[in-house]
């Protein structure tokens, strides 16, 4: 457990693609047990931030997970350290069955004996997936793929889950279901960093939130508070202040 309960800390993170800065000197923290959300419009730098945390884009600044510097740690080792990811666009392997998609996420686990229990847990949360367990990932609907992406992240039994726009392309009903599941997963002990464009949903479940605009954090605070903030309401919730 990290001292003072900080699970993930990001200091002065800058990510540049050529001359364009996608993320410009941001700092943020996620405490153990929290749901923290990073909201912002398309192109604000949310996904780039997640990619830096997972070790797949180069960056400057410092990212630490449980006090350990993640610089130079390979992406698959970061998973082994306890951080799972639900990638942008779900990242389902369309040529693998539902079961195989889940199984692959157990690659880094040492406790192979507990894996069957976790399939049951995942299928308990998403009974629909159990019916489709031998179907190829590519044949699932968008909602089912998103369920599979979350279930897959659960299979790695990580203490922290990063999610990149789980609401993307889903009907409002399904979005509510997925967010309910995220709350349940969080209550069961998983810390969550949630990147979202759907600011309303994200803010309503997050303990704390950061608002990202063109690569900078322009606002931060408790989720409920930002939900009432006039700037947030105007820019992201489509409500006149």
């Amino acid at each position: 457990m990290g001292a003072n309960g900080i699970m993930l800390s990001i200091e002065n993170l800058t990510i540049a693609y050529g001359n364009i800065k996608a993320v410009d000197n941001i700092s943020l923290e996620v405490n153990e047990g929290e749901i923290v959300t990073l909201i912002g419009a398309n192109g604000a730098g949310k996904s780039s931030t997640l990619r830096a945390i997972s070790g797949i884009v180069p960056y400057s600044g410092r990212i630490r997970y449980r006090q350990e510097d993640l610089r130079g740690v390979a992406a698959h080792r970061i998973v082994a350290m306890g951080m799972a990811q639900v990638p942008e666009g779900r990242g389902i392997f369309g040529n693998l069955t539902v079961m195989e998609n889940l199984k692959l996420a157990t690659w880094q686990r040492k406790d192979k004996g507990d894996i069957p229990k976790d399939y049951e847990r995942a299928f308990g949360i998403f009974p629909q997936l159990q019916k489709r367990r031998d179907q190829l990932g590519g044949t699932l609907s968008g909602g089912e793929q998103q369920m599979l992406a979350v279930a897959r992240a659960l299979m790695s039994r990580s203490s922290m889950m990063l999610l990149d726009e789980p609401s993307m392309g889903l009907a409002p009903m399904l979005v509510r279901d997925i967010f309910q599941v995220l709350c349940d997963i969080n209550r069961a002990g998983t810390t969550i960093l949630l990147v979202e464009q759907n600011a309303h949903m994200a803010l309503s479940i997050a303990a704390r939130a950061y608002v990202l605009e063109t690569g900078r954090i322009i606002l931060s605070g408790p989720g409920k508070e930002l939900l009432g903030d006039s700037r947030v309401r105007e820019a992201y919730l489509g409500v006149d202040a």
């Binding site: 997972s54 797949i56 195989e100």
Partner: peptide, 24 residues
């Protein structure tokens, strides 16, 4: 096998596989 599964996964999408812990 898991290795075969990983091969198929990588052939589908090389960028996602490491995010699941697969040593590409």
């Amino acid at each position: 096998t898991m290795v075969g599964m990983a091969m198929r996964a990588i052939s589908w999408d090389k960028t996602v596989a490491p995010l699941l812990g697969v040593p590409v």
